[in-house]
């Protein structure tokens, strides 16, 4: 009986042990599953951590890039402003170049006109040069140059182009456009160049030829060439130049011709006396 009881107790204890062992096994498995879960969670967290770190780095990178973009935008603005300034300077230089070219052209014309006017002391040549200046540099097609006869106080045509000099009347000083220009010493310019008149006293421009305040003649321009529609700035400068330099050239050449003539006469007398 006691042996049976012992056997029963042993069996019971073995069952209990088996139960405990099973529970232990189950618990161990449970622990392993839990461990697996935790390891998975750890991996997930590590990944999240890594991603968070990357995101922070990316954010920092974005901030850096934003800063660089702002700097580049600033640089771009500055460059654009510099380009605008350089372009404005270029336009200014181009305008100044055109202006200087124009001034060069004007100076060349004025230089040539002055040079030629004073290149001779021959009265006829001086008149010819004045005509050439009006034709070639101003573009006058019809014009006449009148000289003052101080004895009769009248203007007499000496040379011209496109007009019959012999048929131009003598113009008294103080009368009409030409006479008024001669008496006042002030230049006359027609208000419009469209109405070309054939009347000798209706010029497009009339310039007094003056030595200081003394008028020795007038220049009257009646018509411009077909291609010349209006007076340019340089034309007014040439008229001003002619007013002074043509007058002195005419006066000097007349004086020279007279002195030459007198010298020839005196030389003739001397030859007569010495031979």
């Amino acid at each position: 009986m006691s042996q049976k009881e012992d056997q029963g107790k042993l069996t019971q204890r073995a069952d209990e042990f088996l139960q405990i062992f099973k529970k232990g096994a189950e618990f161990t498995q449970e622990l392993m599953r839990e461990n697996e879960k935790l390891r998975f969670q750890l991996v997930q967290m590590e990944e999240q951590n890594r991603l968070a770190s990357c995101a922070a780095q990316a954010l920092q990178e974005v901030e850096n890039l934003k800063s660089q973009v702002a700097e580049l935008e600033q640089e771009k603005m500055e460059i654009m402003q510099r380009i605008a300034r350089v372009e404005a300077e270029n336009i200014d230089f181009a305008n100044r170049y055109v202006e200087i070219e124009g001034e060069n052209n004007s100076l060349a014309n004025l230089y040539i006109a002055t040079y030629q006017l004073h290149s001779t002391l021959d009265f006829r040549e001086v008149l010819q040069i004045i005509s050439e200046i009006i034709i070639n540099l101003i573009g006058g097609e019809e014009f006449a140059l009148f000289l003052l006869d101080e004895n009769t106080a009248s203007l007499q045509a000496m040379v011209g182009e496109g007009v019959e000099i012999d048929q131009l009347p003598v113009c008294p000083v103080g009368e009409g456009t030409l006479g008024t220009v001669a008496s006042t010493g002030e230049s006359f310019y027609a208000t419009t160049l469209d109405d070309v008149s054939s009347a000798y006293d209706a010029p497009l421009a009339c310039i007094p030829l003056k030595i200081k305040d003394r008028v020795i003649g007038v220049l009257a321009v009646y018509k411009l060439f077909l291609q010349k529609k209006r007076f340019a700035d340089i034309d007014y400068e040439l008229f001003t130049l002619l007013a002074g330099h043509a007058a002195t050239a005419i006066f000097a050449s007349k004086l020279y011709s007279e002195s030459e003539r007198k010298l020839t006469t005196i030389q003739g007398f001397l030859d007569l006396l010495t031979k």
Partner: peptide
């Protein structure tokens, strides 16, 4: 033939 015009062209 015009000395003035010739001088202007030559100078240019």
């Amino acid at each position: 033939d015009s000395a003035i015009m010739r001088q202007l062209l030559v100078m240019s």
